Amino acid sequence: MESTVVDPDMEELFNLFLEQESEPWDSREPDTDPTVCIAGNPEDCPRILSEKQPFHFQIRDTSHKSFYLQDNILVATNLQGDNAAVEEKVTVVPNRHLERKRCPLILGVQGGSKGLSCGNDGQPQLQLEDVQLLNLFHQEKEAKCFTFYKTYNGSTHSFEAAAYPGWFLCTSTQVNKPISLTMQLGQSAITDFYFQRK
């Protein structure tokens, strides 16, 4: 499934992270340790990441259900009025190790402090892990299970797990059910989403 429409938000995101790379490690200040920046907090390497911040998006399925956290599980429901304040925005950074034209995005919530992982045990299972998305940007192997190929058809978007081809991010047709993964497109699960930058 290939994107048929140019997504200007994604062009901007990939240009920011990939075409304005900081200078090579060997030309940086002597006290700038790349391993600290990769394994530690983004704050440990402000020269490198200060201008590169994740993008944040409001995501809703085609039934207009929003994402929110319930006991550290990401679920989808219709949020209105005061409840709208608990809606989770999806945070994204590009995966620079995968094919750019497929729009590989590392997805998270909570401002990028929790990643949406498909797991790596052979059977895909969506779960939240405490990671920093900006750190995953530097990690090829670790980032793949948090990466989804985004396809845009001009009105809705779909998200295919990079580590599990054919598995897509989905919501249930019922409310208050966990966000999960499915191979059954267009059947009992919703795999098309409205995805608007915030």
Rank of each mutant, 00 (worst) to 15 (best):
L107I: 12
N83Y: 10
N95M: 12
E129A: 04
Q123A: 05
P124Y: 04
L126H: 12
G122F: 12
R102V: 00
I38K: 15
D130Q: 11
P24F: 02
N135T: 01
S50L: 10
F137D: 00
G40P: 04
L79M: 03
R96W: 00
R96M: 06
G111M: 07
E23T: 05
V90F: 07
N15M: 06
G112K: 04
N72C: 06
F57L: 09
T147M: 05
E140G: 02
P54H: 01
L16K: 11
V131M: 06
L128Q: 03
S22M: 06
D61A: 08
P104I: 09
E142M: 13
Q80L: 14
T35N: 13
Q139R: 13
G40A: 06
S22L: 03
F17K: 10
K150Q: 07
C145G: 00
S113Q: 13
N83S: 12
D121E: 15
F17M: 07
G112M: 08
N78R: 15
K52N: 03
T147C: 05
L69Q: 04
T35A: 15
R96E: 10
N135E: 00
Q53F: 02
L69G: 02
T35I: 14
H56A: 14
Q127A: 13
V90Q: 06
Q132F: 00
C145M: 12
I73D: 15
G81T: 11
Q132D: 00
H56T: 07
L133K: 00
V131S: 02
S27L: 10
D130E: 12
T77K: 09
E142N: 07
R28V: 02
S66F: 00
S50W: 06
T151G: 07
E43W: 01
G40C: 04
S27P: 00
L107V: 10
I59F: 07
N15I: 11
K52D: 03
Q139M: 14
